[in-house]
C-alpha cells in the first residue's frame, strides 16, 4: 500500500508532476542538499536500452539448459519469464548479466545485446556488464558483516580507490527507491541481517539499485517471502519500472500476471533443453495463448 502512494525521489524528473512531495520527502529524510540537484542526478538511472537476445544457448558441460532463444526485452518494461521447473528460466536470466559463467563448466553461445553492444563480445568485461545489469536473487543475501548502510554502499565502493563522493546521498536514494528508507533511516548502522526477510530482500534491491544499473534481473525475488512482503516487492517493481528495465523469473503465475508487461514462456523439449515457446504482452499470453503448451501451463494442467 504505502509504496504505491509514496512517490520516489526520482519521479519528479519524469514529468509526473509530483516534485513537491518529492522535495518534502528529501527534506523529511534529513538530507541537506536541496531536492533539485538530487533529482537531476537521478535521471542518469533512466534506462534507455532494450536487450536483444539472439540464438542464445547455454548450459553446463555436456548439458544444454536453454537452447535457441531469441527474444527482445524492451526498455522500461517488466518482462516475466515463466515456465515449469527445469525449463532454464534462471539460466536464461543469468546469461543476461554473464553471471551464468561463474558456475564451473558453464558455457553460453549466441549474442545478448544491450543497446547496440554484444555483452558476449570478446572485448567486453563481464564486471562492467554486471554494473549495468544488476541482479536480485531468490534468497535475500545481505552481507552479514556489514551494516545496512555498508550493504547498500558495497557496490559503490567497488572498482575504485578511496572515498566515494556523495556516498550518503546515493545510499539514501537507493533505499528510497527500494521503499526501505523510512523503515531503516534510524538504524542505518545496524547489521543488515537483523531485518525481516522482506526488508532484507528490499535491502538487496537497494544494494543492486545503488550502482545505478539500467536493467534489473530478479530471480524469483519473492519466493522466500510471505504474501504481504511479496505484495510490497511487486508494488516496488511497478514503481521501479518507470526508470528501470526489469526481468523477473517467477514460478508464480498470478505474480507474472499482476506485475509484468510482457511474458515469455519457456519449456523444456524432449532433449531437456529449455526453449522459448511463446512471448508477448502479458494479457495476451494469459488470455489468448497461441500455443497449446502455453495454455496447458497457465491453466495449471502441468508444471
Amino acid at each position: 500500500m504505502t509504496t504505491a502512494e509514496r512517490p520516489l525521489v526520482t519521479t519528479s524528473t519524469l514529468g509526473l508532476g509530483r516534485s513537491d512531495s518529492a522535495a518534502t520527502l528529501v527534506r523529511a529524510a534529513g538530507a541537506q542538499a536541496p531536492a533539485a540537484p538530487a533529482s537531476a542526478e537521478a535521471t542518469s538511472t533512466l534506462s534507455m536500452h532494450s536487450m536483444h537476445v539472439e540464438r542464445l544457448a547455454a548450459g553446463f558441460g555436456r548439458f544444454t539448459a536453454v537452447d535457441d532463444i531469441t527474444h527482445t526485452i524492451p526498455a522500461r518494461t517488466i518482462t516475466a519469464i515463466i515456465g515449469p521447473s527445469g525449463s532454464g528460466k534462471s539460466t536464461f536470466l543469468r546469461c543476461l548479466n554473464r553471471m551464468h559463467e561463474e558456475v564451473t563448466g558453464a558455457w553460453a553461445k549466441g549474442s545478448v545485446r544491450l543497446g547496440s553492444e554484444d555483452i558476449y563480445a570478446a572485448r567486453i568485461d563481464p564486471v562492467q556488464v554486471r554494473r549495468r545489469v544488476g541482479m536480485v536473487f531468490q534468497k535475500p543475501n545481505p552481507f552479514p558483516t556489514m551494516s545496512i548502510y555498508d550493504n547498500v554502499a558495497a557496490g559503490l565502493r567497488l572498482n575504485q580507490w578511496g572515498r566515494v563522493p556523495t556516498l550518503d546521498e546515493k545510499v539514501e536514494r537507493a533505499l528510497q527507491q527500494a521503499a526501505l528508507w523510512d523503515e531503516v533511516k534510524d538504524k542505518l548502522f545496524q547489521p543488515g541481517a537483523a531485518l525481516s526477510g522482506g526488508q532484507q530482500q528490499r535491502l538487496c534491491i537497494a544494494r543492486a539499485l545503488a550502482v545505478e544499473p539500467e536493467i534489473l534481473l530478479m530471480d524469483e525475488p519473492a519466493s522466500a517471502l510471505d504474501p504481504i512482503a511479496t505484495l510490497r516487492i511487486e508494488e516496488l517493481m511497478r514503481n521501479l519500472v518507470r526508470n528501470y528495465t526489469i526481468v523477473i523469473v517467477t514460478h508464480n503465475m498470478q505474480q507474472a500476471a499482476r506485475v509484468s508487461d510482457r511474458t515469455a514462456f519457456l519449456m523444456m523439449d524432449d532433449d531437456r533443453a529449455g526453449r522459448l515457446v511463446e512471448q508477448g504482452p502479458t494479457d495476451e499470453i494469459f488470455t489468448r495463448p497461441r500455443d497449446k503448451r502455453t495454455e496447458d501451463y497457465i491453466t495449471g494442467r502441468f508444471g
Partner: peptide, 23 residues
Amino acid sequence: DQREAMLALGATRWETIWRAVVP
C-alpha cells in the same frame, strides 16, 4: 550466495574475495 551477491554488483574476483568471502 555471498560470492554471487558481490559478483552481481560488478565486483572483480579479488573484490569478491576480500569484501564478501573473507569478512
